[in-house]
C-alpha cells in the first residue's frame, strides 16, 4: 500500500514539526523568564564576578538563536544539560525517574480502559435502563473527583485508618534494603518478577494499588462516557436495523458487528485517556510521594530549574506525539473508508 507509506511519511514529518516547534517555543519562553539562570546556578550568596563567570560558562552570553542551536545539538547528542537543583545531568535524572512514571501511567491506563470501556458498551446496550443510569452516574463521579483529594482520602482510609495498604512511595524502606530489586528495565513489577524476587513484587504491587486507582479515576469516567456515546451512535445506524431485518441475533450484532464499527473511535478514546493520564500523573505522584518524573518536574518548577523544564517538555511532547501518531496510523489502517 504505497498510499499508506505516503501517509506514514506525512505524519512523521508533521510529528517532527510539532516536536521542534514545541521545543523552540519552550526554549525561548524559558529564556525570557524573569529569573536569571546564572544567578540561580551559583546560588544566593554568590558574588557578581561568580555570576558573570557562570553566565559565560553556561553559554548565556551568546545570542539567543545560537543558544538554541547549541541546545538542539546537545539534545540530539544526548547531553541535556545539568539540573540546577540536583547538579546531575538531566538525562541521568530523567532516566532514573521515567520508568516509575511510565509504570504508574500504564497501570492507570490499564485500569481505566478495562473498567471504563466495557461499562460504556454495557450502558449503551441497555440504554435508559437502571444499569445505564448507574453507569452514567459512576462516570460523572469519577470525572468530578479532584485526583489530589481522592488520593488523600484513599490514603486516609486505607493506609491510616484501615492500615492495609502502604501510604506512599514505590517500595517499603525495609524491602528496599533487604530485597532490593535488580534493575533491568526500571519497572519494579517487571524486574522483580524477572528476577524471582517475589517479596519485592508483592510489596511493589501493594504500593502501586492506591496511586494507580487514583490516577485511573478520571480516565475511567472519560472512557465510559465516550465509549457509551460511540456505541449509541453505532447502534442507531441504518445498517444495524438492516442487520436485524436479516435476522442477526442481538448478541452477534453487539459483539461482532457493531463492535468493529466502534473500535476505531475507541482508539480515539484511548488516545485521549492517555493524554489525561499523563496530566494526572503529576498530581498523583506528588500526593503519594511517587519518585517519578512528575515529582521531579514539580520540584524543578518550584526551584526554577530551566534545563529540566525544557527537557521534560520536549520529552512529554515527544511521548504524546508518538502515541497519537501510532494511534492515527492504526486507525487509518483499520478503516476501509479512508482512501490511502
Amino acid at each position: 500500500m504505497s498510499g499508506f507509506r505516503q501517509y506514514l511519511v506525512k505524519r512523521i514529518i508533521l510529528a517532527l514539526v510539532i516536536v521542534i516547534g514545541m521545543s523552540m517555543i519552550t526554549f525561548f519562553l524559558a529564556r525570557v523568564a524573569p529569573s536569571d539562570p546564572a544567578a540561580l546556578w551559583v546560588g544566593l550568596h554568590a558574588r557578581p564576578e561568580q555570576v558573570e563567570k557562570a553566565r559565560i560558562e553556561l553559554g548565556l552570553d551568546k545570542p539567543l538563536y545560537v543558544q538554541y542551536f547549541i541546545y538542539i545539538r546537545d539534545l540530539i547528542s544526548g547531553s541535556w544539560g545539568i539540573s540546577y537543583r540536583t547538579r546531575r545531568p538531566v538525562i541521568e535524572d530523567i532516566m532514573n525517574y521515567l520508568p516509575a512514571s511510565i509504570e504508574l501511567a500504564v497501570a492507570g491506563l490499564l485500569i481505566a480502559s478495562v473498567v471504563g470501556i466495557p461499562l460504556g458498551v454495557i450502558a449503551a446496550s441497555k440504554k435508559d435502563t437502571r444499569v445505564d443510569h448507574a453507569c452514567r452516574v459512576l462516570g460523572v463521579l469519577t470525572l468530578s473527583t479532584p485526583s489530589f483529594w481522592m488520593g488523600l482520602t484513599l490514603q486516609l482510609i486505607f493506609a491510616r485508618i484501615l492500615g492495609i495498604l502502604p501510604l506512599q512511595g514505590r517500595l517499603s524502606p525495609d524491602v528496599a534494603e533487604m530485597n532490593p530489586i535488580q534493575r533491568i528495565t526500571g519497572f519494579y513489577l517487571l524486574d522483580s518478577l524477572l528476577t524471582g524476587n517475589f517479596i519485592a513484587f508483592q510489596d511493589a504491587l501493594l504500593h502501586i494499588i492506591l496511586p494507580s486507582i487514583t490516577l485511573a479515576a478520571y480516565s475511567t469516567g472519560l472512557s465510559l462516557r465516550m465509549t457509551r456515546s460511540t456505541m449509541i451512535e453505532v447502534l442507531r445506524e441504518r445498517y444495524i436495523v438492516a442487520a436485524k431485518a436479516f435476522g442477526m441475533p442481538k448478541n452477534v450484532i453487539m459483539f461482532y458487528y457493531a463492535l468493529k464499527n466502534a473500535i476505531i473511535p475507541t482508539l480515539t478514546v484511548l488516545g485521549i485517556s492517555f493524554a489525561w493520564t499523563l496530566t494526572g500523573v503529576f498530581l498523583v505522584e506528588v500526593v503519594f510521594n511517587w519518585p517519578g518524573l512528575g515529582t521531579y518536574t514539580w520540584r524543578a518548577i518550584l526551584a526554577v530549574d530551566y534545563p529540566v523544564i525544557v527537557a521534560v517538555t520536549v520529552i512529554s511532547t515527544l511521548i504524546i506525539v508518538v502515541t497519537n501518531l501510532i494511534l492515527d496510523l492504526i486507525q487509518a489502517y483499520l478503516d476501509p473508508r479512508v482512501k490511502l
Binding site: 510539532i18 516536536v19 519562553l29 525570557v32 493524554a275 498530581l283 518536574t297 518548577i301 523544564i309 504524546i320
Partner: peptide, 24 residues
C-alpha cells in the same frame, strides 16, 4: 489545524506548569 495540532500535543497541565514557571 497545524497550529491546533501543535497545541493539542501538550497535556494541559504541562504547559500550565511551564507558564506558571515563566510568569510566576
Amino acid at each position: 489545524m497545524r497550529i491546533t495540532d501543535m497545541f493539542l500535543a501538550f497535556p494541559s497541565l504541562v504547559l500550565a506548569l511551564i507558564i506558571a514557571f515563566i510568569l510566576g
